[in-house]
Design a protein around this nucleic acid. Sequence first.
DNA 1: AAAAAAG
Length: 770
Amino acid sequence: MPKNMGAQSRAGKNSPARGGARAGGPSPKHRGYRPDGEGSAHGGKKPRWSGEQRVARGHSSERPRGGDRNDRRDAPVDGRPNWEPRGRNGETAEPGYRGGRNAGGNRGFGGGRDDRRDDRGGRGFDRDRSDRGPREDRFGDRPRRDFGDRDQNRDGGFRGGDRNRDGGDRPRRQWDDRPRRDFGDRDQNRDGGFRGGDRDRGDRARRENRFDGAGRSDRAPRALRHDHTPFREDRAERPRRDFGDDRPRRDFGDREDRGPRRDFGDRDRAPRRDFGDRDQNRDRGFRGDRDDRPRRDFSDRPRRDFGDRPRRDDDRGYRGDRETQGHYGPRRDREPGAGVPDDVVLERLTAEAIQVDDTESTSFTDLGLGGNIVTALAELGAASPFPIQAGTIPVVLEGRDVLGRGRTGSGKTIAFGAPLVERLLRLNAEKSSNERRKPGRAPRAIILAPTRELALQIDRTVQPIARSVGLFTTQLYGGVPYARQYGALQRGVDIVVGTPGRIGDLVSQGRLDLSQIETVVLDEADHMCDLGFLEPVQDLLRRTPETSQKLLFSATLDAAVAALVDEFLREPAVYEVAGEDQDASTIEHRVFMLDQRDKQAVLAELAAGPGKKLVFARTRAFAEDLTDMLEDYGIRAVSLHGDLNQSRRTRNLEKLTSGRATVLVATDVAARGIHVDDVTLVIQADAPDDYKTYLHRAGRTGRAGKDGIVVTLAPFNRRRRTESLLQRAEIEAEWTEVRPRDELIAQIADRANGVDVDGESDDFADTDED
DNA sequence: AAAAAAG
């Protein structure tokens, strides 16, 4: 299929309109053609521009190629772009408009989605957007989004940029000029605010001082932020916000009772539970009143009742728990009305808690891992085991099947990866070195993940562990050429990491033999049991030896895995971690109720600024629309969804990771497992239907011990639905009615951007990568 | 109903 042709012909046809400035296609006729492009890390077939080349091509002098919004490394996150933003008609850009895709008139690269899917050399540059026509073109005569009343904001309120003009590291608020909203009778929850930083329970005076100190409110000199913007009187006149003490307080109940936090700084995943604040739920009677609630289907959700779990000060250690791991009996504490007769497997998933404190003195060596592996783990930043690791590693080493439920970011990858490698090593001990290295040998372990990105990420953790003891891993997932994967299999691998589709493909091609598999891991196992996944997964499992070890992990492991457990697992040990649950969560959950029509404006306000943010949308198309929209606001947004080809998916995710983009707009492809450091804010442009999805999406932030905020944008007519969602997730969120330019939105954005609102050191300010 | 996962 001549993928290139499409792109080329389009480019060729349209190039004139662009004055040929868009050179870079592979055709020798193009000005930018480089027969042997240095960027051709792709075998020379697909010339590409390296970043250096792009920069070198005078990217900054003008924007002849229409915006590759992802190519703006020359435009600092918060600074002005080097080119002058232009609006549609050549006028200086509207506020906050930083020369988005439309600005340069990149008309003529006609592309639609298909075009974008084609990542080939036809367009030469690795640009994500430039292949699309201007917005008007793409959307016909659809009325242009009305930025009308934003004109008051002409100072670039949406740019999220221009911070640090005062030389500090702190980004500055952008919205301080907004007209004061009338909060009317919404006082009770109107700001709910600032829980993140100042958990000081509303020390009023201090707060005001802090604001002053931070240059907020009546704030730092305007020129420090938007020197191109006229000062507006109404800003100065705006009444101060009242942060009265009437706001609901969050109850941090026993926070102080908890032991000191471990330093989770650079672990591969954060240790936190992201399930919100269970204790609060308890206080609110969320737990006690189950019989009053509409009957809930417990079979599709992980058990969340930990009422009987050992208390934190209980001296039973996780080792002791192993003795009771086979507790399949009925729950002792089941509340009346909550009984679910068909909840058999769920019972099996009811595990004793693994105690956090008891693991602190344990080392990976104690758990049975060898020196090389321990060293490799240390290099990955895992100095001592997390609870779920401490719990599961010895059991995995025994060869038992394991069901592991560890919250997002609790270290599940190492929990199965490290013992899996150790076990293979031990099994290999009987073999001759020739056998162990034999080319074309069949793999001994397989790790399945629901998305390609997750598979990649898992391999990034497992591979160094495996290599430390001379084992080889390979990634087998779709969307990329087969050749490399064939080659890897021919050379022989020990551990396969990948997604079900491609792996099944390779199996049916006879290139992958699962008959020697000793261990199968299903990450996000409950998801792998969803419609569409289950069958291929079952097919694969059936091709592994019946005796092979099965490890099922997920933050929301629940009865959904029954189909697999019943057929493939034998007396699984069940683990989950207690001790760090909702009261330990660093995630703040909020719901913004809004008019449907305000969604995008509110989203843009939330998404502006330098902090890394993840936006979830329900559909690919909406994700793409939102990306466009944010880009129009001058926000460096990239998308991640199944309509993008794999190289673009990978690249866009990397752009967020590296900070070259500040916003990733994704479908649920990014909901599970994906770890990006320092995501400070998760915005759900659409709420999911599934509470598990909510939990997973939320778990993209608040990692590594840092604070995180989750904001769900809920149109009024979805209120009930959203309430029900949060209830099922057992998350207590702060509900607020918002309209564009509400102060609260700015406050949340500020916090996500690391604006110092509380005088304390700010978790969000950290930007180190892993 | 959507998204993901083979091409």
